[in-house]
Simulated scan of single mutants.
Amino acid sequence: MSTSSRFAHKIVIVTGAASGIGRATLIRLVAEGAVALAVDLNEAGLQESVALAQATATHGGRAAHAVASIADEAAVKKTVADFVAREGGLDVLVNMAGFLRATHTQETTFEHFMNVVQVNLGGTFLFCREAMPHLIQRKGNIVNAASTSSYFGHPYMAAYAASKGGVAAMTHTLAWEFLKTGVRVNAVAPGGISTPLTQAMATGFPEGVDYSLITHLSPLNGFGQPENVAGVIAMLASADGAHINGEVIRIDGGVHS
């Protein structure tokens, strides 16, 4: 674990922090001194994440949690407002929350499609919107969760790919829109990372899929770990990433090189 103090006195929100990349990011930032709020719908997972983060906290780092749906506008407003009022500002927003279920496109209901978009893209937008005024005040930054599916063909994931493509596009646009405020907006595009989401996907493909279309999604040298992504997020969100803006960094072990 890093003993850097890059996030000492920095106030941070991490969504999707109950597991996977969100949890690893929470732990990494708190270990570097962040005062962080972990947001997710899974309260038990959040409590475990906060306990893990507290166990490795240094440089004044600490963590708390808030149970909220990122797709619930009122909940997002309250979560951000309450945390900022309590801590006095906001320096970093990390949007990692989202979900995925593989389906045949011709069997995907419009309700399912829109639900995925509402959570993955809409929830990211809501947190960006609510956080932005506070980030402008402190010249903070945002790191969003795109995906390799934002740019490459991921069969049976039309809804997920569309939502993550939207996240990548929104990241580029926000970076340019807020360029003169001093707020940076970047994203990571993980692929082949061992998380509860990807593990569920591996056993959750529908019947009748053509596996020859999806074998290219697996890294040749094994899946990466959430900590591999968390390290990149920490760089982007810190002063080390001060000259990186509007970028989407692919983290997939070279599968799409």
Rank of each mutant, 00 (worst) to 15 (best):
S147F: 03
S147R: 03
T148E: 11
T148R: 09
T148Q: 10
S149I: 02
S150V: 13
Y151M: 12
F152K: 14
F152R: 10
G153I: 06
P155R: 10
P155T: 11
P155N: 06
P155Q: 08
Y156W: 13
Y156F: 11
Y156E: 10
M157V: 01
M157Q: 12
M157C: 09
M157T: 01
A158T: 14
A158P: 03
A158S: 14
A159R: 00
Y160R: 10
Y160E: 01
Y160P: 09
Y160M: 04
Y160N: 03
S163A: 15
S163F: 07
K164C: 07
K164S: 04
G165Q: 02
G165V: 05
G166V: 09
G166Q: 12
A168D: 08
M170T: 10
M170G: 10
T171A: 11
T171S: 07
L174V: 10
E177L: 08
E177C: 06
F178V: 05
T181S: 15
G182A: 04
G182N: 06
V183K: 05
R184V: 13
R184C: 04
N186T: 05
A187M: 06
A187F: 05
V188P: 00
V188H: 01
V188N: 01
A189R: 05
A189S: 13
P190R: 08
G191Q: 00
G191N: 01
S194H: 13
S194N: 11
T195G: 02
T195P: 06
P196Q: 11
P196V: 01
L197S: 02
T198W: 00
T198N: 05
Q199L: 11
A200N: 08
A200S: 15
M201C: 01
M201T: 00
A202E: 05
A202C: 02
A202S: 12
A202M: 07
T203W: 01
T203Y: 00
F205P: 07
P206N: 07
P206M: 04
E207I: 02
E207G: 11
G208K: 09
V209Q: 04
V209I: 15
V209S: 04
V209F: 12
D210G: 10
D210V: 04
Y211W: 11
Y211I: 14
L213Q: 15
I214C: 01
I214S: 02
T215F: 08
T215Y: 04
H216G: 13
H216P: 12
L217G: 08
L217A: 08
L217P: 13
P219H: 12
L220T: 14
L220D: 07
L220K: 15
N221P: 00
N221F: 13
N221D: 14
G222M: 02
F223D: 08
F223E: 10
F223K: 04
F223G: 07
G224V: 08
G224Y: 03
Q225C: 14
Q225R: 14
P226T: 15
P226V: 14
E227M: 15
E227Q: 15
N228E: 15
N228K: 13
V229S: 12
A230R: 10
A230L: 09
G231E: 14
